[in-house]
């Protein structure tokens, strides 16, 4: 019960921070940042597209980290954190895939191309949708949770493949603009806006994770109550 109230407090605090950051982020994206010369106004998708992807990667690393912790300790709470983070990872991945498709149409004149970056990202999305389906199917079964944890750890291998795909293979996807090496780079105002947007998405991830974990806590409490009620009946 103590953990539930801690989560509630953290969610409220991150919610206030998120409100400030989100407003500032929207101001930056639509008013402050200069319009990119080649692509024009549609380039502003970038400030939600990239942070969505980074938040998804973070979520999947959390899934893998907590899955390892679960396999080591058999603490079911770690398994629940993994499941919650996977849900968020899939949500942010859906965001990056859809905004990417909408950006691709004016930029490449097609919504989808079987390009290495897009294909590996789609595979990552399928891996964690499959993980969620497995996790949902096995319910509270300990063996099933262990199987899902192994699946999640193997799945995270695709994250660096997605990230490096544009360096390893020929692609129509733009090369990295941050830490991309020679010839890459952004206008300082664009870099600043991107960084603020990334921070906003990290706080958003944390806020939603707290909300999702409170749900898990309530589910735990309900299961306890049901067990107690069943014992009282006996």
């Amino acid at each position: 019960m103590k953990k539930y109230f801690q989560l509630e407090k953290m969610q409220t605090m991150s919610g206030y921070l998120l409100l400030v950051l989100m407003s500032y982020n929207l101001y930056n994206i639509f008013i402050f940042v200069p319009t990119e010369k080649t692509m024009g106004i549609v380039q502003r998708i970038f400030y939600f597209h990239v942070p969505s992807g980074i938040a998804a990667f973070l979520a999947f690393f959390v899934v893998a980290g907590y899955s390892i912790a679960f396999l080591k300790t058999r603490n079911r709470w770690y398994d629940r954190v993994s499941f919650a983070s996977a849900e968020l990872g899939v949500l942010f991945s859906t965001g990056i895939l859809v905004t990417g498709m909408l950006w691709a149409k004016p930029a490449w004149n097609t919504y989808w191309s079987w390009d290495p970056r897009l294909t590996t990202m789609l595979i990552l999305w399928f891996i964690y949708v499959a993980y969620m389906m497995v996790r949902d199917f096995v319910g509270d079964d300990e063996r099933g949770a262990r199987f899902a944890a192994v699946f999640a750890i193997v799945g995270v291998v695709d994250v660096p493949i997605v990230y490096f795909s544009i360096r390893w293979w020929r692609t129509i996807h733009p090369q990295p603009v941050v830490m991309g090496g020679e010839g890459s780079g952004l206008h300082p105002d664009m870099t600043y806006t991107l960084m603020i947007s990334m921070l906003t998405f990290f706080v958003l991830y944390f806020y939603m994770l707290c909300a999702r974990l409170r749900l898990e806590k309530s589910r735990e409490r309900l299961n306890e109550l049901k067990k107690e009620a069943a014992l009282a009946d006996v």
Binding site: I41, F48, L215
Partner: peptide, 30 residues
């Protein structure tokens, strides 16, 4: 192009609010 920008941002907002709405519904029912 403005339409694509608008739809992209709408998608992000719908995903965020849709997910939060689903969590709050599940929380209330529990």
């Amino acid at each position: 192009n403005l339409n694509f920008l608008f739809i992209s941002y709408m998608v992000i907002w719908v995903l965020i609010f849709g997910y939060m709405f689903s969590i709050s519904r599940r929380q209330n029912s529990l």
